[in-house]
Design a protein around this nucleic acid. Structure first.
Length: 898
RNA sequence: GGGCGGUUAGCUCAGAUGGUUAGAGCGUCUGCUUUACACGCAGAAGGCCGGGGGUUCGAGUCCCUCACCGCCCACCA
């Protein structure tokens, strides 16, 4: 073959083209939206990854999906904004830096708050761009000029404004309450930040003697014996006969000797343990509530550092809580108060970030009152209504119920964290008059008394508070009249993993409606988790993580993206394996080589004038492939509109590989060798070029590289199409070119070719061996004679005789029935009469069974009456086909027996 | 204790609104240096769609139930 005009090596080398292409896109300014207020925009914001983090496959998946949607909309001509961002990620980032400090033998307290914050900013400067760079490697077509960080001035002002508004409304308040405390991170956690894990533990049974009758006692059961030091009561169910006489009495707390009351409370499960619960209001949520109901004192016996306090008694004060556990058990055993110990499997709360066992304890924290889901006008109520009444659509639909169920049980959100890294709560306390007030801008003096002796609250806000504002804080809120905010809010869609539905999505809906009066986005599209090839969650501790950068270097970015997003249903988890990646890489290579062929075929041609639109293909094969292409174009757009990206890609794969490469290109080769290759060449380039555009949102790099080569060779309409495939129009079917006749005729041709190939393989006739054939056309004379060369070439039969009506091929050898055609292969020497008769009998039997089944269906009056007419019609046609086929086979069998 | 998802070819998974003989990739088997591609081509084998019951003319698809596997939520100490 002659060398193509543009050097395209026989294997697609992703590594050599990707970074150059990305740079070109960026330099050309394609990522920024072309704002056109006459058109509704498409806007999606990137879930901001941790600023000091690195890309993992979850990010790669999210970026692939968002980029595909973004590219599709951009090509559709929508003003398209994909806004990238990064999150300061309070606890996570602080922990990373603290670990680094620990390695240096110091800690944040030695450094002091200011110096520590400087260290974190240094860290951000050092590692903060890693994730952006990684996104670029993935081909992310986001608008980097709008990149936002949660600690940028804009988002900071959004956070403070939100806080001040809610504070002034009385919805943000400070209160002493039992919260989840991580002694390692030394901060409060929200309910969501506690992960419960099943652990093997013990259940300890402890006797609490009655004050007025030391011989009598109540036995309580507990998994946390050390907490008994803080007990201020014992609770039993009021209807529990076993304890009825003891309610209202006093028991003596072992070790401490403290008299504590026995109270009746319906929260007690009579069936559990002994039916008596030791009440530790200071270190258990249930106990806290029981304590509130019965006015029991609340003692804090475990401190913020995880060690016992003075309230636990001098013997235990200062002891680490787990050391205290065994010490307390020893003492209880020694004093005879320990009745028994049982093995017990139960769930224990751990810090989501550092896995330390969480300690519930009472402390002064800031809370956001979100109200109740069924209270209209409250934060939770509005967020609930938005999904119920369809202002926001959650996909897959099942997650809408999960969301609503969570809101139905929501409680006030603990938003304060005892960290140094984050949005410091904008509340100032006056040392002079004692007032407190919230401010967007730092005040110089107390607004009440004018004193300069004011001090800002030291706590920072939960990271999710600032990310909850992301859809509007990135677009300029709270500035009114912000062009971006007016135009791009609400966002079109929010795409993220289902694992942060509560953390992030719900908070964005709550705070978005609160701040703007409108929903933050119209649709929520949730993807699943990326699992390893064994179906295990990827995690660093398991050591089964795959680095996306390694994978894209090994297989190419397009292959990684394709493997991550093809053939999985929305919301479902997916396993990633080398097989999948290889298959995706092979696909990229397949397109590459198809393109090499096409580019070579059109080189130097001047008869391709209307290839770009190809409004009216004439040849049967051209009409067939174009008809298929149009159908594919329709479904691809439909699938994309419904977020069924996996389905769209599967169909593209099937069309390109099977219809186009395996069949159309092979057929076209025959015509390219003929005297009139122009039409075939035009169709080849038309179908390839459209396929590239259809595929571009998913495989941006290989499609761009090929497209540029292709357009150099065949520039298309006068003036060219576009400078890049990423801003070329996404194919749509405005003037459909359906060709049902061509589709069915080509189908017969393909079946004929398959039948011969099949027989050749069965009889082990070498590919090189000439095979004669004759086709009885039975009414398809013109089709067969026109496709004769194709059949001959692809089925490798020569010479091929096309028989007119009345003519009959050889009666010896093999007869293949491809209704209405009969292919005669004169293989008398290879196949004997007996074998051929047997084969045909088998085929006849099968045809008869099929025919019989369809006949029965159509004989069923219920079917005919109730099934949709087009279904009945389809079955009728099928019966007719089967009947004809049966008659043809019977005829041949009859011939053989003569 | 609630809720959700899964159970389809040896493996990994697709299969709107029920309607041909249930599909793909990988793997397996048989042939191919066919002038785009061996990251390929051609052909083939392989499935009581987890079990049971029901609705329907018709069920992988809808309903009930059971069994495993996984996930989420929840204040049984």
């Amino acid at each position: 073959m002659t060398q193509p005009a543009i050097a395209m090596p026989p294997a697609y080398d992703a590594a050599s083209v990707e970074q150059r292409i990305y740079q070109n896109w960026w330099d050309s300014g394609y990522f920024a939206p072309q704002v056109n207020t006459d058109r509704p925009p498409f806007c999606v914001i990137m879930p901001p990854p941790n600023v000091t983090g690195e890309l993992h496959l979850g990010h790669a998946l999210t970026a692939s999906l968002q980029d595909s949607l973004t590219r599709w909309h951009r090509m559709c001509g929508d003003p398209t904004l994909w806004l990238p961002g990064k999150d300061h990620a309070g606890i996570a980032t602080q922990w990373v830096v603290e670990r680094a400090l620990a390695a240096e033998g110091t800690n944040r307290h030695e450094l002091g708050r200011e110096k520590f914050e400087e260290r974190v900013w240094d860290w951000v400067a050092l590692y903060g761009n890693t994730i952006d760079e990684q996104h670029r490697r993935l081909g992310a077509s986001c608008d980097w000029s709008r990149l936002r960080f949660t600690l940028d001035p804009g988002p900071v002002r959004a956070v403070r404004t939100t806080f001040v508004n809610l504070y002034n409304k009385g919805l943000i308040y400070r209160h002493e309450r039992i919260i989840n405390w991580c002694p390692r991170c030394a901060t409060a956690l929200s309910d969501l930040e506690v992960d419960y894990e099943e652990r093997d533990g013990k259940l300890y049974y402890i006797r609490y003697p009655l004050a007025d009758d030391p011989a009598d006692f109540i036995t309580v059961a507990t998994t946390r014996p050390e907490s008994m030091l803080g007990d201020t009561g014992v609770a039993v169910h009021p209807e529990d006969d076993r304890y009825a006489a003891k309610v209202g009495k006093t028991v003596l707390l072992p070790i401490m000797g403290r008299p504590i009351p026995v109270v009746g409370d319906t929260a007690i499960e009579m069936d559990f343990g002994t039916g008596a619960l030791k009440v530790t209001p200071g270190h258990d949520l249930v106990d806290f509530e029981i304590g509130e109901r019965h006015n029991l004192p609340m003692l804090t016996v475990i401190g913020f550092d995880g060690c016992l306090t003075d309230a636990a008694g001098s013997k235990y004060s200062g002891m680490e809580r787990f050391a205290a556990r065994s010490a307390v058990v020893d003492e209880l055993a020694a004093t005879g108060a320990l009745e028994k110990v049982e093995d017990y499997h139960h769930s224990v709360g751990h810090c989501q970030r550092c896995s330390e066992v969480v300690e519930p304890l009472i402390s002064l924290q800031w809370f956001l009152n979100v109200g109740k889901h069924d209270q209209p006008g409250t934060i939770a109520g509005n967020a609930y209504a938005a999904v119920v009444n369809g202002d926001i659509e959650i996909l897959p639909e099942r997650f809408a119920r999960v969301y609503l169920n969570w809101l139905e049980n929501i409680r006030d959100w603990c938003i304060s964290r005892q960290l140094w890294w984050g949005h410091r709560i904008p509340v100032w306390y006056c040392a002079s008059c004692g007032s407190q007030s919230a401010h967007v801008a730092d005040p110089d003096a107390c607004p009440d008394c004018g004193s300069a002796a004011i001090e800002q609250e030291s706590d920072v806000l939960d990271t999710w508070f600032s990310s909850g504002l992301w859809p509007h804080s990135t677009l300029g809120w709270p500035d009114t009249g912000s062009a971006d905010l007016d135009y791009f809010y609400p966002n079109t869609v929010l795409e993220t993993g289902y694992d942060i539905l509560f953390f992030w999505v719900a908070r964005m809906i709550m705070l978005g409606i609160e701040n703007t009066g409108d929903v933050p986005f119209r649709s929520v599209y949730l993807h699943g988790m990326v699992l390893d090839s064994q179906g295990q969650k990827m995690s660093k501790t398991r050591g089964n993580t795959l680095d996306p950068l390694d994978l894209l270097e090994q297989y190419g970015t397009d292959a990684l993206r394709f493997a991550l997003t093809t053939g999985t249903a929305p919301g479902n988890n997916l396993r990633l394996s080398d097989d999948k990646l290889e298959s995706a890489r092979n696909f990229a290579n397949k397109i590459w080589n198809a393109a090499r062929f096409v580019i070579n075929a059109i080189e130097g041609r001047d008869d391709l004038s209307d290839w770009y639109e190809l409004p009216a293909p004439r040849h049967r094969e051209d009409r067939w492939i174009v008809s298929r292409l149009d159908a594919l174009t329709e479904t691809a757009n439909e699938n994309l509109a419904q977020f069924e990206l996996g389905e769209a890609q599967q169909r593209l794969y099937d069309f390109i590989w099977n219809d186009f490469c395996d069949w159309y290109i092979e057929m076209a080769k025959v015509r390219l060798r003929s005297e009139q290759p122009g039409e075939a060449a035009a169709t080849l380039v038309h179908v390839l070029e459209r396929s590239l555009r259809l595929l571009h949102p998913f495989m941006p790099f290989v499609t761009e590289e090929i497209w540029q080569n292709l357009m150099t060779q065949a520039p298309g309409p006068a003036g060219g199409v576009a400078s890049s495939i990423m801003i070329a129009p996404y194919p749509r079917v405005d003037s459909p070119r359906p060709a049902p006749d061509a589709e069915s005729e080509v189908e017969v041709v393909m079946q004929t070719i398959r039948a011969v190939r099949n027989m050749r393989a069965q009889l082990r006739i070498p590919a090189g061996q000439k095979l004669e054939a004759a086709i009885e056309t039975n009414g398809m004379m013109s089709v067969v004679s026109e496709e004769k060369d194709v059949i001959s070439a692809l089925a490798r039969v020569e010479p091929l005789r096309v028989l007119d009506a009345g003519d009959s091929g050889a009666t010896s050898g093999v007869s293949l029935v491809v209704n209405p055609l009969v292919v005669r292969l004169p293989l008398a020497g290879v196949v004997d009469l007996e074998a051929e008769t047997e084969r045909l009998d088998k085929e006849l039997g099968e045809t008869r069974r099929n025919q019989e089944r369809v006949r029965q269906l159509l004989d069923n009056p219920n079917f005919v009456a109730k099934a949709r007419p087009e279904v009945v019609e389809k079955e009728r046609q099928r019966l007719q086909r089967l009947t004809e086929q049966r008659e043809r086979i019977e005829e041949i069998v009859a011939q053989l027996s003569r």
